[in-house]
Design a protein around this nucleic acid. Structure first.
Length: 813
DNA sequence: GAGCACTGC
């Protein structure tokens, strides 16, 4: 380990800049890079969302299963005028939210909503809205969508697009519900109202909820289901809050896809605003593809009433989107009829239907400082830059460091703290705060608290800080230029998780985090030459993932010819074929390629096709088997339910505490035992989870999924209608594992004489992941849910199976 | 002997 700090960071473009070597001033101890796991802090609970901590989480526990979100309901004021609208009693949205158990239950219903104070608040906010960069473009934007059906909008960060666009549009004439005659599938014409509502999609749940809350405030209306008069609502999984008067609805992309399964023409919407397209998750690609078909089609399902589409992105890469929509109008699905009506494009480019709008952001300048020479160890380099900043740059000004994963974060955390010990006491102090998704909620919250006096915060983050989390106070960004990327390898059916260079747009995004509140600086731990070789944009997820779920989605919406679907980025033919074969092997498709009855049922489940298939297979056994399989599938569709045990004592304790949960059959029956034990605990589930080193947070998600799946199974008549709180029967491991083999026959491996496992299909070496209860155990054959490459190929979610079951399952598919 | 980030009636 070098004792001196040689890396020098100069201001770019200024070769004569004074050397900023910090070796003289930093008391560098020879710490080296200890990978001492026992020094790792205990991580109690993996977190999933960064939301303000809920004080009443504990009380809420038993209400969770039936609760409707209403926590944000305005506190009713007695003098307020009641504003009750007549609403159809059949609407589920009108049901008053059940109040959560609180010390003093407050009425959460609308009757006495204080509309006067809501209005006052909105008036105050109006002054702030007027200062947003987008505000001056309101008329232009309205005109654009009057003249065109599609608008592409580049709005840099801080432009205010997500909150303002829906408000600009909601009172437009085309945004009113309009009576229309719709020809139904049976050929009959029916009169229905079309439109009236604006949907705004978001990639993340938190964003959808916080934006809805904000827009409700700005519009001076109560939020979602808190009042039947509420004009703004949201819809995310497990949490939908809308009212009969909802005009503006924020929802996740997945939720819109789900709505399209039932209403492919989106008849309740006059407009769909697709926000944050540049993030390019699979779902947004599907949404945009379906929307293109909708706007360029004949609109017969909407009685001819147009759907307005606004696609918004923070990056300037609009050419591909423009080309994408133009292509749709060039080969319009509306064909004959529209052309005779004179509606088709006039210049052959489809520009009549598409407008483009560019809004500047509100961002302070950020100076970029490159490493003068290539960096081999970015953790050491980051350490030096952190102290260089701390010694040279004035306070206040927190530092945000982008690293690749939990391990690099923890190593650097340790190093920074070690160096801080020998630091000049006259200098401000340093507070190191790690930030990654698996960090317990409470620890994540610490990054939002302002630093104590005379202290500089140093936040060490994974790319959770690139999009999901905004840390205030940051003026310096340190970017290692890398990120862990998940890539599905079609040919091997293998997911790999590897450290890769980021794209230019990701680098720009990271840099931007320094200029949110004041001018800032971004230290890139790579050379300018390296920067120039980076890809322009991050590879869209659709090119990096298993496509079976996306394809099943499309098939379920009647897209028969996948090859002709308008992909924003077309996946390679091989990947599409592989996914189709995969769907065929689980009987989700007919031999002809059309969706099967089984496939339709699977598509409606919030599960991957394979897990959906397993659920149906279990249902063919009996209700007990199905209930057990639901419990296991619920665990498989959330993050790891078992906490990592880093310290030695904890590890011992965990082994003992979990002994009664472990099952020799493998991880699946262990998960079942855990869910059963957790669900049976009626006194204090949180304490139970802590005792067993099980993540309480993950278990809450498990219970949410379990409830959702049970409900759907009852609706599909796979489970009896009545809850039937009878005695639990002993699980039948053989039936359960055979159900799983129906979906995972190809994910099996057998023990070979040298003691390793080889996949049954493909004969590849695979090791049991250390997190498995079967780790280092030898059984005849294993079945696994995931096949992942990190340092080597691992099987995760593993159970022991018999080779003859595998043979049967493979033959049956 | 190990866990980038999101998401779903």
């Amino acid at each position: 380990m070098p004792e001196k700090v040689h890396t020098r960071f100069d201001d770019s473009g200024d070769e004569s800049a004074k050397p900023s070597t910090v070796s003289e001033s930093i008391p560098v101890q020879n710490t080296g890079r200890k990978k001492n796991r026992s020094k790792k802090r205990k991580r109690d609970e993996p977190a999933d969302q960064l939301q303000p901590p809920k004080a009443d989480r504990e009380n809420e526990l038993h209400q969770r299963e039936n609760s409707v979100t209403a926590a944000a309901a305005p506190i009713p004021a007695p003098e307020a005028k009641p504003a009750i609208e007549k609403v159809p009693s059949s609407s589920t949205a009108t049901q008053p939210p059940k109040s959560k158990a609180r010390p003093k239950p407050k009425p959460l219903v609308d009757h006495k909503t204080n509309f006067t104070s809501l209005r006052e608040k909105a008036n105050t906010l109006y002054e702030m809205r007027k200062k947003l960069p987008i505000f001056g473009h309101a008329d232009e934007i309205r005109q654009n969508l009057r003249d065109h059906d599609v608008m592409l909008l580049v709005g840099e960060t801080g432009s205010g697009k997500s909150t303002q666009i829906p408000q600009f549009l909601v009172n437009e004439f085309w945004c009113r519900p309009t009576p229309a005659k719709i020809t139904k599938a049976d050929g009959k014409e029916k009169s229905e109202m079309v439109g009236g509502c604006i949907a705004i999609t978001q990639p993340r749940r938190v964003a959808a909820i916080t934006l809805a809350r904000r827009v409700a405030e700005e519009m001076g209306t109560p939020l979602g289901s808190s009042s039947p008069a509420s004009k703004v609502g949201y819809s995310v999984r497990f949490d939908t809050s809308t009212s009969p008067s909802t005009r503006v609805k924020f929802l996740t992309e997945g939720m819109l896809l789900q709505e399209m399964l039932h209403d492919p023409w989106l008849t309740r919407y006059s407009a769909v605003v697709v926000d944050e397209v540049h993030e390019r998750g699979v779902n947004v690609d599907l949404v945009v593809g379906f929307l293109r078909n909708l706007v360029s089609g004949k609109r017969e399902g909407r009685g001819g009433i147009p759907l307005k589409v606004a696609v918004m992105s923070a990056t300037a890469d609009m050419e591909s989107l423009l080309g994408f929509f133009q292509e749709g109008f060039k080969h319009p699905m509306r064909s004959q009829q529209a052309i005779t009506n004179g509606e088709a494009e006039q210049d052959g480019q489809g520009t009549k239907e598409i407008s483009v709008c560019h809004i500047k952001g509100r961002q302070f300048p950020v100076k970029t400082i490159y490493s003068p020479e290539p960096v081999h160890d970015f953790v050491d380099a980051a350490l030096k830059v952190i102290y260089q900043i701390h010694y040279k740059e004035p306070m206040p000004g927190d530092i945000l460091v982008f690293l690749t994963g939990q391990e690099t974060v923890e190593v650097l955390e340790h190093l920074v703290n070690e160096y801080a010990v020998g630091m000049d006491p006259a200098l401000p102090r340093i507070q190191v705060l790690p930030l990654f998704a698996a960090l317990p909620q409470a620890a994540q919250q610490r990054v939002f608290a302002p630093a104590p006096p005379r202290t500089r915060k140093v936040v060490l983050a994974t790319n959770i800080a690139e999009t999901s989390v905004t840390v205030s106070g940051v003026r310096y960004v340190v970017d290692c230029g890398k990120a862990k990327v998940k890539q599905f390898r079609t040919r091997l059916g293998l997911d790999s998780l590897l450290v890769k260079p980021i794209s230019k747009s990701a680098a720009i995004q990271r840099k931007g985090r320094a200029g949110r509140e004041a001018p800032g600086q971004c230290f890139r731990l790579y050379t300018e030459k390296d920067y120039l070789t980076l890809d322009e944009t991050t590879t869209p997820e659709i090119l990096r993932c298993d496509l079976s779920q996306a394809l099943l989605n499309m098939k379920a919406r009647g897209v028969d010819d996948i090859v002709r679907f308008p992909f924003l980025t077309r996946p390679p033919r091989e990947a599409l074929e592989k996914a189709l074969l995969q769907l065929l092997s689980i009987q989700a498709l007919e031999e002809t390629g059309g969706i099967s009855e089984t496939g339709l049922r699977i598509a409606k489940l919030p599960l991957t096709p394979t897990l959906g298939r397993v659920l149906l297979a279990a249902a063919e056994n009996d209700a007990n088997c199905l209930m057990d399989v639901i419990d296991i599938i619920s665990c498989l569709s959330v993050e790891n339910i078992f906490l990592n045990t880093n310290s030695e004592e904890k590890k011992e304790a965990a082994e003992t505490a979990r002994r009664d949960l472990y099952r020799r059959e493998g991880d699946h029956l262990t998960m079942l035992a855990t869910v059963r034990a957790y669900a049976a605990e009626n006194a204090d589930r949180k304490a139970w989870a802590e005792r067993h080193l099980v993540s309480h947070r993950a278990m809450q998600s498990v219970m949410d999924v379990r409830k959702q799946l049970r409900t759907q199974c009852r609706q599909a008549q796979l489970l009896p209608r009545d809850e039937g709180h009878g005695q639990l029967s002993d699980p039948s491991p053989i039936l359960i594992l055979q159900s799983f083999l129906t979906g995972f026959a190809a994910n099996t491996a057998r023990l070979v004489p040298d003691g390793s496992y080889r996949t049954v299909v493909g004969n590849q070496t695979v090791a049991i992941h250390p997190s498995s209860v079967l780790f280092s155990k030898k059984v005849e054959a294993i079945m696994y849910n995931e096949f992942v490459f990190t340092n080597r190929t691992y099987a995760r979610g593993v159970s022991a199976v018999q080779m003859d079951w595998v043979g049967e399952a493979l033959a049956g598919s």
